[in-house]
Amino acid sequence: MTNHKHVKDGVVAAPAHLDLEGDVAELTARLMDIESVSGGEAAIADAVEAALARLPHLSVHRDGDSIIARTELGRAERVILAGHLDTVPLPTTPGSRGTVPSVWEKDDDGTDVLYGRGATDMKGGVAVQLALAAGLTAPNRDVTYVFYDHEEVEGYKSGLGRLFRNSPELLDGDFAILLEPTDGTVEGGCNGTIRFRVTTKGRAAHSARAWMGENAIHKMADVLTRLSVHRPVTVNVDGLDFRESLNAVKIGGGIAGNVIPDHCEAEINYRFAPDKDPDGAEAYVRALLPGYDLERTDAAAGARPGLNHPAAAAFVATVGQKPKPKYGWTDVARFSAAGVPAVNFGPGDALLAHSDDEHVRADAIRACYGSLREWLTA
Rank of each mutant, 00 (worst) to 15 (best):
V285D: 06
L294W: 03
N247D: 04
V259R: 14
S245W: 12
D298M: 11
G306P: 06
I260C: 10
E244C: 11
A299D: 04
A303I: 04
F272S: 03
P274G: 11
A303F: 03
A204H: 08
R296K: 15
D298N: 11
L224W: 10
P232I: 09
E267W: 14
H206P: 08
H263I: 02
M212A: 12
A208Y: 08
R286I: 05
G239T: 03
L289E: 10
R286F: 09
I251L: 13
D241C: 08
A221P: 01
V259A: 15
K219W: 09
T234S: 14
V223N: 06
G239N: 00
E244D: 10
G239K: 00
A287R: 01
A283T: 06
T199L: 11
E265D: 15
A281H: 01
R271W: 11
A300K: 07
K276F: 09
V198D: 09
I260V: 15
L227W: 10
A283Y: 02
A299P: 03
D262R: 02
V259S: 14
A312P: 09
K201M: 11
A311H: 00
P274A: 12
A314D: 15
P274T: 12
I268W: 00
T234Q: 07
A313N: 02
I268M: 00
I217F: 09
